[in-house]
Design a protein around this nucleic acid. Sequence first.
DNA 1: CGGTTTATGTAACATATATCACATACATCG
DNA 2: CGATGTATGTGATATATGTTACATAAACCG
Lengths: 245, 245
Amino acid sequence: MHNSNIAGIKSSEVESIDIQDDRKRELEASYPMLGSINDPEWISTINKARNLDFNPHTVMFSGSAPCNNFMFILKGIIRIYQTAEDGRELTLYRVEAGDLCILSLNSMLQNQSFNAIAETETDVTALVLNADDFKVAMNGSETFRNYVVTTLTERLCETMYLIQNTAFNHLNMRLACMLGSLFERNQGPVLKITHQDLAHELGTTREVISRILKEFERQDCIKLSRGYIKLASAEGLEWFSNNPK
Amino acid sequence: MHNSNIAGIKSSEVESIDIQDDRKRELEASYPMLGSINDPEWISTINKARNLDFNPHTVMFSGSAPCNNFMFILKGIIRIYQTAEDGRELTLYRVEAGDLCILSLNSMLQNQSFNAIAETETDVTALVLNADDFKVAMNGSETFRNYVVTTLTERLCETMYLIQNTAFNHLNMRLACMLGSLFERNQGPVLKITHQDLAHELGTTREVISRILKEFERQDCIKLSRGYIKLASAEGLEWFSNNPK
DNA sequence: CGGTTTATGTAACATATATCACATACATCG
DNA sequence: CGATGTATGTGATATATGTTACATAAACCG
């Protein structure tokens, strides 16, 4: 289709004959809430969907390259971020299996461009509906509708929180919070991440991050080494997460 | 109902017998897209709705006082903003006649609190649905559903833009943009607003705004007087709106 | 092993914004 | 008119963050 020339798409368009059950199981694994829907429109729509694979570090869409499909993410992680002219980046959120791809919703529903970039961080497999099928599914299934509206609302709330955080909190606090949640999700106390990566999360520059990290290390909260950060004191980090200055 | 003890509510609960046509006309005036819906669930739901009036400067809801109803705004303006401990405020957006009250959507759909404050700026009249009626309307009318999803998506886009703006642009640029759009909406070149108000829009302090405004005045973009700002050169202001430093 | 790339450390400096401490000026109202 | 509250002007100073310009070090690769 008109998407097939985007860089990074791998192959694997699956024929949709008699694989309904596979499809359903696959979707159910990532979207438990949706797996149990039995509305006929929903079933037939899912059955018409295509599988698409993306390589890591592929730009799935941006303001200039909109995407007129709706996607369920079956596997992998997508990072949504904004850029400034000077090369700074700010991560808005991530989309994983089970999440709703709001960017795609937007470019489907209106032409207004989103002014953000969606880029795969890992291998990504998505289930793709075109705009018409999405409409059919929305009209046919109340569960799906609820899912869409709830997820949109949730995302909006998180975004409001992000605004508050960036507007009112200092970088050391924001960095401490970020590290805190990264360590939480991480198995084990050693986090694989570079200072530049952290800068791109928070919308600042590498030097600034390095400086604050060094300060955290001096306070024995963390231990730094090339490409890694080791947690030394969760309490210490927690303190920085709550302390305004 | 359980809302009736919130400060600032005026009175005017209207009995809903045979006023269907009035109601419909009223709604249509503010929400042209919705006025033409003829689904029976929709009609009966609207008919069950209550009118509520609010005085200016009434906090309609905040994180601590959620609102479990859905509202159509028939008249007036509501400001949604966040606060910091030090008294700074940052306006997220405004809701007017024809807009969707996303805050109410959120508190209806989930318990997660929104972490923002909604406050009337003028007299406000709203048409109020409870959560169940909202569901009925959503299930009954595709037009209403489209309206909700489209508006949510739109709001999300605008919010993303706000993040980019606050994270990457300097205050003089942001202030110039803000003034630009205020003058645009304003009839005539004289804007009634205080420096403190502008600070509350942008999440900063009065002194900072005063200083930048003075700079704009020195560059003959505006003329300052107590409580008012007069546009002197739209081009000059435009220049500051686009210039990074 | 040596050359190259990538990640980090860090000092010095530039700038934007925040904060403090007032002075002044305008507006309102008795 | 004079008193009071509110809005503005502004210098001085503090701090956070951004920028420049390197040095060093670890990892990578032929």
